[in-house]
Design a protein around this nucleic acid. Structure first.
Lengths: 338, 338
DNA sequence: CTGAAAGCGCTTACAG
DNA sequence: CTGAAAGCGCTTACAG
């Protein structure tokens, strides 16, 4: 014992009259150590109150002990469920989650990627497929396993655990059109640097393009995913001459803002204007009227992302992207019109 | 370059034609390096895509680089805002957040504490003041700095960044009673192992005890913080002979469940029964009727928790607990009755 | 302002 | 089943 406070593996070895190699084996592969030696070491570890030093371990071996996730924001239910599932699955496999947020800013995302790598992340969960070349280059150069969630693009390479935002929005828009709506407005998330927001816009446009002579997009506003912003966009839309019969929102938070503001303005949903959302957060069913939206399998997606990332880290050849379907949840905020 | 994939500090040194000491200085105290050397190193770091190896750093110095947070659950907006703020503040100080969830289970909490420590956490954020002696003993034995958030108990030692749940609930209950309510029911979170849930119950009871002859607690149901559970508890309450005039909920999620279920049952809020929440999540203002609740300064609290923890880690003598006040937000779900 | 060198605590072939 | 020893990538007095 070098008498320096925290006991080291060497202290344990000395005190147990074995080599450091044996103590290390005891720690990592106890079955490779003779029973009698085992109990001897066990005893002195107890006595000294020894705990392995992470720095030493990390340096000497290259086992992945941590994985990072960078999400646009935590202050929002959109990612909570998925991340919870992701973390649970990692924890089951003895891996710790490092987490950071980018505020939807690609520069911050790169910064946080670097920061999490510097903190020992041996793999990464990223949200969405769209990011600057610089970031992708950095990732590839480091040969870093990473999984993209909340998106799925089979044409691009990379590993995904997600869903097709464009298709999901297309399906919802088709249902909206089937309900007789011909004047559609959209309040979307900001599509710059956000392929999920962009995909949802494109999906709505696709469905409208199927009916070029009858259905049209009367307005499209991109704004932040905040209730207040949704409400403001609603005011803008309703102040125009050509009012929509339905407002399709880029997510449930925007839709909640719209429904709330409509109530304040004395505009009835869905009698005066229909509203749809995206995500099926808790809030969707609690709103009045309850919200027609797209259900995203957040929890399953988060789990799948963890499993996929774990496979990539183990260089498992069978690692394969997972695509999730989405489901349209019809509730009261969407009216059928003549 | 040893041509082994990940570039090391030595590769950077070689390629920059300086010593490893200088590169290390550049990384840790750039001002100690000549400007021209600085930009030289900067360039080759960029070129090689170098990121410092955590194991090496940890082994060579004892700086705290990571901090852990263990929260009951991430799949819930209750903690999102606070954790977001906590993470942002850490990030500003170059510290990475390790995160884990306990599922409200003290055993899992201890497990996760050990796991985060083994992953290099040099400090911890914990939720609530109540935990088994075993856990507290472990924490103290390791001499580990930690901050307790979402609670504040000046009589106990330890460091807090939080608020007094009991007092906040007491204040709200007083307002409820001032509105003329005499038959109060409460749908609370599960108080076992949860001092926040317990404190809120006690606060309501305290206020009722101020009016022993006129006001009474007609019912108290403890249940999980889920909308569905809130709805079910509502059904139970309304099936009893002695119905409450107001249902005080342990948080906004439960209240949302109540309001939703009431709507389904054709029971009007607040005409037939009033409802209150706790937290002032986004959902509170979006509900119909909008929810009277207690606003908790989640964001400020998260930031303060990070600042406090950072001070503790730096052994700053001025480290001091921070108590936050809460605010009652009067909205439409609470009626004044005769 | 910079470099040579020791050392942080562990793991892991390799040899026996 | 066990040990001697090299080496993982970094930081930090110390000397210049």
């Amino acid at each position: 014992m070098k008498n320096r406070g925290t006991p080291t593996l060497e202290d344990v070895a000395l005190s147990s009259k074995v080599s450091t190699a044996t103590v290390s084996r005891y720690l990592n592969n106890p079955e490779k150590v003779a029973k009698s030696t085992r109990s001897q070491i066990q005893k002195t570890i107890q006595k000294l109150g020894y705990t392995p030093n992470l720095g030493g371990r990390m340096l000497a071996s290259n086992k992945v002990r941590m994985v990072g996730a960078i999400i646009p924001t935590m202050a929002n239910a959109m990612f909570s469920n998925g991340i919870q599932a992701f973390q649970e699955e990692l924890s089951k496999n003895g891996i710790t989650l490092l987490i950071a947020s980018s505020g939807y800013d690609p520069k911050q995302e790169l910064q946080q990627i670097q920061s999490l790598l510097a903190s020992g992340a041996g793999g990464l969960l990223l949200i969405g497929a769209e990011r600057p070349k610089k970031t992708v280059r950095f990732l590839n150069q480091r040969n870093l396993p990473y999984v993209i969630a909340w998106a799925f693009q089979e044409e691009l390479n990379g590993y995904y655990a997600g869903f097709n935002n464009r298709l999901a929005a297309y399906d919802l828009a088709k249902v909206v059109i089937d309900h007789g709506h011909k004047k559609i407005a959209m309040i979307a998330g900001i599509s710059e640097n956000n392929d999920r927001a962009g995909g949802r816009i494109d999906g709505v446009k696709d469905a409208i393009a199927d009916h070029p002579d009858t259905v049209r997009l009367v307005d499209l506003i991109e704004t932040k995913y905040r209730m207040e912003a949704g409400g403001n966009a609603f005011d803008t839309l309703m102040s125009k001459v050509s009012k929509p019969s339905v407002i399709m929102c880029g997510n449930d938070v925007l839709a909640a803002g719209v429904i709330m503001r409509a109530r304040q303005r004395g505009i009835r949903v869905p009698e005066d204007v229909s509203v749809t959302g995206f995500d099926d957060l808790n809030i969707a069913s609690a709103l009045a009227p309850s919200l027609t939206t797209v259900r995203v399998p957040h929890y399953a997606m988060g789990r799948a992302a963890a499993k996929l990332l774990l496979k990539l880290i183990q260089k498992d050849e069978k690692a394969k992207s997972a695509e999730f379907g989405t489901e349209i949840i019809l509730r009261d905020s969407l009216a059928r019109i003549a």
